[in-house]
């Protein structure tokens, strides 16, 4: 492990051992649904409340990842997890069932990558052999938290994003596997002084652009280095702004996609601008991207997870919405 440039890290010995994904019904019925391991047919996941449903999602994602990796819960040295709720309840309530050290993380929708960066540091420094990085989000819990009751007849503008229901778990390990975590760039909080709470994609785009530029500068590479550059949940509105900002800085590339655009079938499903939430990046990363890397269809992927650090109270106090973005590079190391 060494620090590269201003705020990037290079890893030599961190592997993505196994990963698991669990989703709600809408994600399963979309085009990348076949890469999702397990899904529920209803949002409630046969639980009484939405919050309990999200805890269940995260819990099952963890157990499923253990099962796939053929590990026992004692083998896991540390759980790193995060979600969007107040006091990251889904994460802490999931962890109470296991006798494993736990660190709760909050990076809004960037938690999927943030947890992998934090976990990779523990793996690289040989403190733990296996670390579980978990994230989850749930449509109904975040509607409650950040917006209106789901039955309320308000009109959502086309820039609104739809929170993904789902949870993903990535098991990082010192044990060699097909996928290696090689690089990471830790983002800075960027506030573009944007105040529209119904347009989080655009609010996050500057943070993502800053992180991408920082990553290119730190490693002295350009976009051709990667097979795919993937942003977290900028959705349609945000990804246009993201590309435009980079164009202003003279960075142009075409191997780009956004998890928020990939996760739903936007022609058929009523999801407005696209998907968002911790689960969005997590489901794509642990499902589709992991599959592509382990079958060598992609070799080197840069994933920039973006988070809008929005708080409804501060938004009502006329504060703008700061954004953050963290990047990691996943490489296929299969012979």
């Amino acid at each position: 492990m060494r620090r590269v440039g201003e705020n990037s890290i290079e890893y030599n010995n961190v592997y993505l051992l196994e990963s698991s994904t669990i989703s709600g019904p809408r994600e399963k019925n979309a085009q990348l649904g076949k890469f999702i391991d397990k899904s529920y047919n209803e949002l409630s996941c046969s639980e009484k409340t939405w919050e309990k449903a999200e805890i269940k999602l995260q819990n099952e994602a963890f157990l499923l990842a253990l099962e796939k990796a053929n590990l026992k819960s004692e083998d896991i040295g540390l759980i790193l997890s995060g979600d969007l709720n107040n006091q990251i309840i889904a994460s802490s309530y999931m962890a109470r069932k296991f006798n494993i050290p736990h660190i709760g993380l909050y990076g809004a929708c960037s938690t999927a990558v943030l947890s992998i960066i934090v976990g990779a540091n523990y793996i690289e420094s040989n403190i733990f052999n296996n670390v579980a990085c978990l994230t989850s989000s749930h449509y109904a819990t975040s509607e409650r938290q950040f917006r209106f009751p789901t039955e309320y007849g308000g009109q959502k503008p086309s820039s609104t994003t739809t929170t993904v229901t789902g949870s993903g778990c990535s098991l990082l390990s010192t044990k060699k596997s097909n996928i290696k975590v090689t690089r990471a760039t830790i983002g800075k909080v960027v506030d573009p002084n944007y105040k529209d709470v119904q347009d989080l994609g655009r609010a996050m785009a500057p943070a993502a652009a800053m992180t991408l530029r920082q990553h290119f500068e730190d490693f002295n590479v350009d976009a051709s280095e990667y097979d795919l550059i993937l942003t977290g949940d900028l959705s349609e509105c945000g990804s246009i702004v993201f590309k435009d900002i980079l164009k202003e800085w003279g960075i142009e590339f075409y191997n780009y996609n956004d998890c928020g655009l990939m996760i739903y079938d936007r022609k058929v499903q009523e999801v407005f601008s696209g998907g968002s939430g911790c689960g969005c990046c997590s489901l794509i990363l642990n499902g589709y991207i992991k599959e592509m890397l382990s079958t060598k269809k992609l070799n080197k992927v840069l994933i920039i997870a973006t988070g809008a650090l929005m708080n409804p109270l501060l938004a009502q106090q006329k504060e703008s919405i700061p954004g953050i973005a963290h990047a990691i590079v996943l490489e296929s190391v299969m012979e």
Binding site: P157, P192, N193, C237, V241, D244, I245
Partner: peptide, 23 residues
């Protein structure tokens, strides 16, 4: 300097609501 670029691009890509159609 960055914030000027952000302002410019965000202003250019402002969300236009279909006001007349909605109304």
């Amino acid at each position: 300097m960055e914030s000027e670029v952000f302002q410019k691009v965000l202003e250019k890509n402002k969300n236009r609501r279909p006001i007349l159609k909605n109304s």
